[in-house]
Protein backbone atom coordinates (compact mmCIF):
# COMPACT_ATOMS: atom_id res chain seq x y z
CA UNK A 1 0.00 0.00 0.00
CA UNK A 2 1.29 3.48 -0.94
CA UNK A 3 -0.02 6.66 0.64
CA UNK A 4 0.73 10.20 -0.45
CA UNK A 5 0.00 13.46 1.34
CA UNK A 6 1.38 16.47 3.17
CA UNK A 7 3.06 16.45 6.58
CA UNK A 8 1.55 18.26 9.58
CA UNK A 9 3.70 18.96 12.63
CA UNK A 10 2.94 20.26 16.12
CA UNK A 11 4.93 21.88 18.83
CA UNK A 12 6.06 20.42 21.13
CA UNK A 13 5.88 17.16 19.21
CA UNK A 14 6.70 14.61 21.94
CA UNK A 15 4.00 13.13 24.19
CA UNK A 16 1.04 14.29 22.08
CA UNK A 17 -1.76 12.78 24.16
CA UNK A 18 -5.24 11.67 23.21
CA UNK A 19 -6.76 14.65 25.04
CA UNK A 20 -4.96 16.86 22.50
CA UNK A 21 -6.06 14.66 19.61
CA UNK A 22 -9.69 14.93 20.71
CA UNK A 23 -10.65 16.71 23.90
CA UNK A 24 -12.79 15.06 26.57
CA UNK A 25 -15.27 17.91 26.31
CA UNK A 26 -16.24 16.75 22.80
CA UNK A 27 -15.84 13.02 22.99
CA UNK A 28 -18.67 12.61 25.47
CA UNK A 29 -21.08 14.83 23.62
CA UNK A 30 -20.44 14.05 19.98
CA UNK A 31 -21.02 10.59 18.61
CA UNK A 32 -20.58 11.38 14.92
CA UNK A 33 -16.94 10.98 13.87
CA UNK A 34 -17.25 13.54 11.07
CA UNK A 35 -18.40 16.09 13.64
CA UNK A 36 -15.61 15.09 16.05
CA UNK A 37 -13.13 15.46 13.17
CA UNK A 38 -13.83 19.21 13.18
CA UNK A 39 -12.22 19.43 16.64
CA UNK A 40 -9.26 17.16 16.11
CA UNK A 41 -5.92 18.53 17.48
CA UNK A 42 -7.79 21.71 18.44
CA UNK A 43 -6.02 22.29 21.76
CA UNK A 44 -2.57 22.38 20.18
CA UNK A 45 -3.50 23.74 16.74
CA UNK A 46 -6.93 25.42 16.59
CA UNK A 47 -6.97 25.56 12.77
CA UNK A 48 -5.73 22.02 12.09
CA UNK A 49 -9.09 20.64 10.98
CA UNK A 50 -9.33 23.39 8.35
CA UNK A 51 -5.81 22.77 7.04
CA UNK A 52 -5.80 19.00 6.82
CA UNK A 53 -6.54 17.41 3.43
CA UNK A 54 -7.54 13.86 2.68
CA UNK A 55 -4.48 11.62 2.65
CA UNK A 56 -2.30 13.88 4.82
CA UNK A 57 0.04 12.66 7.54
CA UNK A 58 0.59 13.64 11.12
CA UNK A 59 4.29 13.68 11.92
CA UNK A 60 5.41 13.67 15.54
CA UNK A 61 8.16 12.78 17.98
CA UNK A 62 8.10 10.29 20.84
CA UNK A 63 5.15 8.68 22.63
CA UNK A 64 2.39 9.80 20.27
CA UNK A 65 -1.11 8.97 21.57
CA UNK A 66 -0.30 8.66 25.26
CA UNK A 67 -2.95 9.18 27.93
CA UNK A 68 -6.60 8.26 27.75
CA UNK A 69 -7.81 5.08 26.03
CA UNK A 70 -10.40 7.00 24.01
CA UNK A 71 -10.73 5.28 20.65
CA UNK A 72 -12.31 8.47 19.39
CA UNK A 73 -8.71 9.70 18.96
CA UNK A 74 -7.64 7.44 16.08
CA UNK A 75 -11.18 7.40 14.68
CA UNK A 76 -11.42 11.20 14.58
CA UNK A 77 -7.99 11.43 12.93
CA UNK A 78 -9.10 8.98 10.30
CA UNK A 79 -12.40 10.80 9.81
CA UNK A 80 -10.45 14.04 9.37
CA UNK A 81 -8.70 12.45 6.40
CA UNK A 82 -5.37 11.57 8.02
CA UNK A 83 -4.06 8.48 6.21
CA UNK A 84 -1.26 7.57 8.66
CA UNK A 85 0.66 8.90 11.65
CA UNK A 86 4.46 8.94 11.51
CA UNK A 87 6.26 9.16 14.86
CA UNK A 88 9.40 8.04 16.64
CA UNK A 89 7.29 5.96 19.03
CA UNK A 90 3.68 5.39 20.01
CA UNK A 91 1.87 4.80 23.28
CA UNK A 92 0.52 1.29 23.71
CA UNK A 93 -3.27 1.69 23.78
CA UNK A 94 -3.28 4.15 20.89
CA UNK A 95 -1.07 1.79 18.92
CA UNK A 96 -3.47 -1.14 19.21
CA UNK A 97 -6.58 0.98 18.72
CA UNK A 98 -5.28 2.60 15.54
CA UNK A 99 -4.67 -0.70 13.80
CA UNK A 100 -7.95 -2.01 15.23
CA UNK A 101 -9.83 0.74 13.41
CA UNK A 102 -7.65 0.73 10.29
CA UNK A 103 -5.33 3.72 10.78
CA UNK A 104 -1.71 2.75 10.01
CA UNK A 105 1.03 3.98 12.33
CA UNK A 106 4.57 4.29 11.06
CA UNK A 107 7.55 4.24 13.40
CA UNK A 108 10.55 6.07 11.99
CA UNK A 109 13.00 8.90 12.55
CA UNK A 110 10.88 11.97 11.90
CA UNK A 111 13.49 14.67 12.64
CA UNK A 112 14.11 15.67 9.03
CA UNK A 113 10.44 16.01 8.07
CA UNK A 114 9.12 19.56 8.10
CA UNK A 115 5.54 20.82 8.12
CA UNK A 116 4.20 20.94 4.58
CA UNK A 117 6.64 18.40 3.11
CA UNK A 118 5.05 16.12 0.54
CA UNK A 119 5.53 12.49 1.58
CA UNK A 120 4.94 9.12 0.01
CA UNK A 121 4.73 6.20 2.42
CA UNK A 122 5.25 2.73 1.04
CA UNK A 123 3.95 0.42 3.76
CA UNK A 124 5.22 -2.77 2.14
CA UNK A 125 8.72 -1.51 1.43
CA UNK A 126 8.90 0.28 4.80
CA UNK A 127 10.01 3.49 3.15
CA UNK A 128 9.01 7.15 3.42
CA UNK A 129 10.07 9.42 0.53
CA UNK A 130 10.11 13.15 0.99
CA UNK A 131 9.63 14.76 -2.42
CA UNK A 132 10.59 18.20 -1.09
CA UNK A 133 13.98 17.21 0.34
CA UNK A 134 14.46 14.15 -1.85
CA UNK A 135 15.27 12.12 1.24
CA UNK A 136 14.19 8.52 1.92
CA UNK A 137 13.58 7.31 5.45
CA UNK A 138 13.57 3.66 6.44
CA UNK A 139 10.68 2.76 8.76
CA UNK A 140 10.37 -0.02 11.33
CA UNK A 141 8.40 -2.86 9.85
CA UNK A 142 4.79 -3.18 10.96
CA UNK A 143 4.41 -6.31 13.13
CA UNK A 144 2.67 -9.20 11.40
CA UNK A 145 -0.31 -9.09 13.82
CA UNK A 146 -0.95 -5.47 12.92
CA UNK A 147 -0.60 -6.16 9.20
CA UNK A 148 -3.24 -8.87 9.44
CA UNK A 149 -5.60 -6.49 11.23
CA UNK A 150 -5.05 -3.77 8.62
CA UNK A 151 -5.57 -6.20 5.75
CA UNK A 152 -8.82 -7.45 7.28
CA UNK A 153 -10.14 -3.92 7.76
CA UNK A 154 -9.68 -3.76 11.53
CA UNK A 155 -10.19 -5.98 14.54
CA UNK A 156 -13.97 -6.33 14.42
CA UNK A 157 -13.96 -7.16 10.70
CA UNK A 158 -11.16 -9.64 11.44
CA UNK A 159 -13.34 -11.38 14.03
CA UNK A 160 -16.32 -11.38 11.70
CA UNK A 161 -14.26 -12.84 8.90
CA UNK A 162 -12.56 -15.60 10.88
CA UNK A 163 -15.02 -16.09 13.76
CA UNK A 164 -11.97 -16.06 16.03
CA UNK A 165 -8.49 -14.54 16.27
CA UNK A 166 -6.40 -15.71 13.31
CA UNK A 167 -3.32 -13.59 13.79
CA UNK A 168 -0.41 -15.87 12.97
Amino acid sequence: MRLTGNAHRFSPDDDINTDYIISGRYKFRIDDMNELAKHVMEDIDPVFSKKVCKGDFIVAGRNFGCGSSREQAPRALKAAGVSAVLAKSFARIFYRSSFNIGLPLIECDTDSIRAGDRLTVDLDAGLVTNSVTGESIQTKSIPRTMQVLLEDGGLIEHLKKHGDFALE
Binding site: E71, I93, N100, G154, L155, I156, L159
Partner: peptide, 28 residues
Protein backbone atom coordinates in the same frame (compact mmCIF):
# COMPACT_ATOMS: atom_id res chain seq x y z
CA UNK B 1 -10.24 3.13 30.21
CA UNK B 2 -6.52 3.73 30.37
CA UNK B 3 -6.33 3.51 34.16
CA UNK B 4 -7.56 -0.09 34.24
CA UNK B 5 -3.99 -0.93 35.32
CA UNK B 6 -5.16 0.18 38.82
CA UNK B 7 -6.25 -3.36 39.69
CA UNK B 8 -2.63 -4.47 39.64
CA UNK B 9 -2.72 -3.56 43.34
CA UNK B 10 -4.71 -6.77 43.80
CA UNK B 11 -1.99 -8.95 42.22
CA UNK B 12 -3.87 -9.00 38.90
CA UNK B 13 -2.77 -8.21 35.36
CA UNK B 14 -5.17 -5.57 34.14
CA UNK B 15 -4.84 -3.07 31.35
CA UNK B 16 -6.66 -0.34 29.49
CA UNK B 17 -7.60 -0.76 25.83
CA UNK B 18 -9.68 0.94 23.19
CA UNK B 19 -13.36 0.15 22.75
CA UNK B 20 -12.83 -2.24 19.79
CA UNK B 21 -10.40 -4.37 21.81
CA UNK B 22 -12.75 -4.54 24.79
CA UNK B 23 -15.66 -5.36 22.47
CA UNK B 24 -13.58 -8.18 20.99
CA UNK B 25 -12.79 -9.49 24.49
CA UNK B 26 -16.45 -9.30 25.53
CA UNK B 27 -17.52 -11.07 22.36
CA UNK B 28 -14.88 -13.78 22.25
Amino acid sequence: DSHTCTYGALNACSTGLGSADVAAAAYA
